[in-house]
């Protein structure tokens, strides 16, 4: 558990004059469940966006260790001509979103198929003429899609439009879709938001199963403290764009700075 999958070094993200993240440092261990917590607006999602290549961090480095060696996220984004967020996904980082973003007009299984074919580029001619390689890749993709539908208990909905599904299932579908990219690291942005207690328990089981069975490292942003404390190995606490605590759930829960950020304190207490 000592080898870090993701190293975040001195990351600062600015939007004009607004500093969303300042000098953030932490490591995510392989096979761990790492939770990012903090009040709304603390910069958790911004950092997620930097890690997953949605944004390019203004300063600092985010390095993913892959089977082929370390990959610098910023370098993937700025690689000339072919660079872009899709390379980050191909390097092995997948994510879900705070407000669900499925392809609502496509079927459930199509949502999962889009997330595949990462290695074999879609090619106009091979698609039209259905070459043998193409057919095999397609069959594998469908098989994998159904595997994840099975894992997420969504097989019955395979041919429904994603936008028609009830909310809880859309959440599960989003995780299935992220898993179809065969990630090493999955970033879940508030996966329990809007779920009822039973669904939240199911979600925590799903997350733990993903880690146990699929050699996966999980990062999660979550406000449900019960969920965070019960599943995570490592908690990083943000406030106003900076990391104010970093440690095991127990350490963090007793950290005075964390308590202050969540509950608020008198000004003079902070000064002390």
């Amino acid at each position: 558990m000592t080898e870090p999958v993701l190293t975040v070094e001195n990351v600062t993200m600015r939007f004009g004059g607004i500093v969303a993240n300042q000098n953030v440092n932490f490591k995510v261990d392989k096979g761990a469940i790492t939770a990012l917590i903090g009040p709304n607006g603390a910069g958790k999602t911004t950092l997620f966006n930097c890690i997953t290549g949605f944004y390019r961090a203004s300063e600092g480095r985010i390095v993913l260790s892959t089977a082929e060696g370390p990959r610098d996220i910023g370098a993937l984004l700025s690689r000339p001509i072919v660079g872009g967020s899709h390379l980050v996904t191909r390097a092995g980082i997948a994510r879900t979103f705070q407000n669900i973003r499925l392809f609502r007009e496509m079927t459930v299984v199509e949502n999962l198929l889009v997330a595949q074919h990462l290695d074999t580029e879609a090619n106009l001619l091979s698609g039209v003429f259905k070459s043998a390689v193409f057919r095999r890749a397609e069959a594998e993709a469908v098989e994998r899609a159904f595997y994840w539908l099975g894992q997420m208990n969504l097989v019955d909905d395979a041919n429904r439009l994603a936008g028609e599904l009830p909310y809880g299932r859309q959440r599960r579908l989003e995780i299935a879709r992220a898993m179809c990219t065969s990630p090493r690291l999955i970033c879940l942005d508030e996966p329990a938001a809007g779920l009822n207690p039973a669904e939240t328990i199911e979600l925590s089981e799903v997350i733990q199963r993903l880690r146990a069975d699929h050699d996966l490292t999980v990062m999660v942003i979550e406000h449900d403290m019960h969920l965070v404390m019960s599943i995570s190995d490592h908690v990083v606490v943000f406030d106003h764009g900076v990391v104010i605590a970093d440690g095991t759930p127990k350490e963090v829960a007793n950290d005075p700075a964390v308590v202050a950020a969540y509950l608020g304190v008198e000004e003079k207490e902070v000064a002390e």
Partner: peptide, 19 residues
């Protein structure tokens, strides 16, 4: 399929590995 996905949401498609 990738065209349709890109049409619905370009950024999400990129995050899912679509060029």
């Amino acid at each position: 399929r990738q065209c349709r996905a890109t049409q619905q949401n370009r950024h999400i498609s990129a995050v899912l590995g679509v060029n």
